[in-house]
Design a protein around this nucleic acid. Structure first.
Lengths: 246, 246
DNA sequence: CGTCCCCTTGAATGAAGTCAATACGCGTGG
DNA sequence: CCACGCGTATTGACTTCATTCAAGGGGACG
């Protein structure tokens, strides 16, 4: 159930089978199946549980009064929404599915039991939270400094690597189930310009994107174009000193 | 010492005098005075301590290879850098002072002692961390969706309110010690356009900005122009149920 | 009194947005 | 089986917002 999450966390620290079991149980506690483009939480809601995406894609977004929308992050399989979110009275953003999705709802008590009893898992969740923050900062840089081509290239690199980290890529390819309009909302560009930018990336022989599948023909060069440095994803098993030795 | 931090946290929960003493001691443990435009941590450094800004302004930023720079956040008095940052092997961004600054360095052991022994303070620090994330998301929205006028207006609102929350505003005014070039790095705009945008805000009689002092002549209207909604700062004493009753 | 930094201004250029029309692909229902 | 419809992708022409380049002004400080 929590395979993607476990696979991701093991890029930080090697977990024991008990650790994995604990995560697996938490992820199985209450599972919901959702259709595409269904909202999970709306701005203003009282946050009550922690969501873990098991399958499919979701996103965080904020609306401005006049209808403009910014997607501020994607949830890929294995991604958690903010830990301890229930401290806050109300959500300051919304979360919705992008595709058909399976999410686990983890209750506050379950979550706190993990924090209490499983130090290694707690550390791994902290690591994940810090990486999530780093991703958010990187998005800020992406929107603030990079032009259209760089911006899209960077986002594609990030998504591909995150998916690969969760063990869900196939060679140079991975699922890429979002529309150009959604890509536009995530990059702060117009759909027209997203379209033209994708065409440019295709004509540079860097990517292939059709039928909900992304293939990155030349990852090193795409990373160069997007000035993508993966350091902010902190994937080098930085917590190895905490490894389970079972 | 930690007045600004305490004042800020009390917008979430009322602290006991022991809570405050604990924070005050942590903030006095090791204090460094820094000049303006001095770096505190560089990308690639191993994070070892938690920084708390006591006086002055600092910022987080990232450089691209070609020299472009994005400021991804400001540290105002009372602001902490990421909790638990020492889990990570190396920093993925840099931190530098903007003005002359006093920072407290809080050691890992001190920090962990607080988390262990002082549940209410821990909750308040969590709240602060969640707000920091929300701010980062809001910056993403700001850069992605708002045009120049809206963007600058929004940033000014946010900074003013954060400063006021730390108890450091004076009526409609507050210190505003950053240059237009720094504002440009924070908003992803050119300095020239920042300049013109500020002039427009002045001519609309919304602000007054001169000699390192910002005066907001009409906050409601400035908020409207920037489509600023303060909900993401979560200032409504959301943790009141945890209040100390001493 | 000169220098440096910051702010300001104007004119030319450019990147991305808008508008509007068209094409494609796919599922549904006749 | 084909026609229709809808969401998504593509294209071209025009506009706009913001950048770039370049020059000038003003104040603080040695």
């Amino acid at each position: 159930m929590a395979d993607a999450l476990i696979k991701k966390l093991e890029h930080f620290v090697r977990l024991s089978s008990l650790d994995k079991e604990v995560l697996g149980r938490a992820a199985a506690e209450r599972v919901r199946k959702l259709r595409a483009h269904e909202h999970i939480v709306l701005e203003g809601d009282k946050p009550k549980v922690i969501y873990l995406v098991l399958e499919g894609w979701a996103c965080r977004y904020k609306h401005l009064e006049d209808g403009r929308r910014q997607i501020v992050g994607f949830f890929l399989p294995g991604d958690l929404c903010d830990l301890n979110i229930f401290i806050l009275r109300e959500m300051d953003h919304s979360i919705a599915t992008v595709t058909r999705t399976m999410v686990a709802e983890i209750s506050r008590t379950t979550f706190e039991a993990i924090l209490d009893g499983h130090a290694r898992v707690t550390q791994a969740l902290w690591w994940d939270a810090l990486v999530t923050m780093a991703i958010q900062r990187e998005w800020t840089v992406n929107l603030g400094q990079r032009d259209a081509l760089e911006r899209v290239a960077h986002l594609l690199c990030e998504i591909f690597i995150r998916i690969r980290t969760a063990g869900l890529s196939r060679g140079k390819s991975c699922d890429f189930p979002i529309t150009q309009a959604e890509l536009a909302d995530a990059t702060g560009m117009s759909t027209v310009h997203v379209n033209r930018t994708l065409q440019e990336l295709r004509s540079l022989k860097l990517i292939n994107l059709a039928g909900r599948v992304l293939t990155i023909m030349d990852l090193p060069r795409l990373m160069q174009v997007g000035m993508f440095t993966p350091n902010y994803l902190h994937l080098d098993r930085e917590g190895a000193y905490l490894d389970s030795n079972e």
